[in-house]
C-alpha cells in the first residue's frame, strides 16, 4: 500500500471515467442559449416599454382634455384722438375760390358757354350745391362776326 505522500500520487494516477457527454448536442444547445440571450434582451426591452406606456395610454384616453381657447393679451397702441380743449367753432367761411387754370380765369374775360359750364361743374364737384352761383350767369351776348372787308374791288 502506498505511503501518505505516495497515496496522493497514486490517487492522481486514477483516471476519471470519461463522461458520456453528447458533444454535438451540447454545442447545439450552447448555440441556442447564446442566441436566446440576445432575443431575451429585446423581449425584455419591448415588454418594459409596453408596460410603461400602457398606463399612460389609458390615462390619456380617459382624461382627454377639452380644447380650450387660449387667452391672449394683445397690446395695441391707442389711436383715439385726445380731447382738445373746447373752442368755439369759427364762423363758416365762404368757399374759397378753387384753383383755376389760368386760361379759365375771369381776368381773361372768357365767357363762352363751354367755359361757363365747365366752371360750374368743377364748382359743384368741389363744393356741392353750395358751389353753384346764386343766380344764373348772365347770357353772354353773342356779337355777330365782323364782315370781311371787301378788298376784291380794290385790286
Amino acid at each position: 500500500m502506498p505511503r501518505a505522500d505516495d497515496l496522493e500520487a497514486a490517487l492522481r494516477g486514477l483516471t476519471p471515467v470519461a463522461p458520456a457527454l453528447d458533444r454535438d448536442r451540447l454545442m447545439y444547445q450552447a448555440g441556442r442559449a447564446s442566441r436566446a440571450g440576445a432575443g431575451r434582451c429585446w423581449a425584455i426591452a419591448v415588454g418594459l416599454l409596453a408596460v410603461a406606456l400602457a398606463p399612460l395610454t389609458i390615462r390619456m384616453s380617459l382624461n382627454r382634455p377639452e380644447p380650450r381657447g387660449q387667452r391672449m393679451v394683445v397690446r395695441v397702441p391707442s389711436t383715439a384722438p385726445q380731447p382738445l380743449p373746447h373752442q368755439p367753432m369759427p364762423p363758416p367761411q365762404p368757399p374759397l375760390p378753387y384753383d383755376q387754370p389760368p386760361y379759365l380765369t375771369e381776368e381773361r374775360g372768357d365767357h363762352s358757354p363751354d367755359v361757363t359750364y365747365f366752371r360750374a361743374e368743377k364748382s359743384v364737384l368741389r363744393w356741392g350745391l353750395d358751389g353753384l352761383p346764386s343766380s344764373p350767369a348772365p347770357p353772354v351776348p353773342v356779337r355777330p362776326a365782323d364782315p370781311l372787308p371787301r378788298v376784291r374791288g380794290r385790286f
Binding site: 502506498p2 494516477g13 486514477l14 476519471p16 471515467v17 470519461a18
Partner: peptide, 18 residues
C-alpha cells in the same frame, strides 16, 4: 455506485476501491 475511475488504469489503487 459504478466506479468513478477507469478500470485498469496505471495506478497502484483499484478504481472501485478508491
Amino acid at each position: 455506485s459504478p466506479s468513478w475511475f477507469t478500470p485498469g488504469a496505471d495506478s497502484a489503487i483499484d478504481g472501485q476501491v478508491a
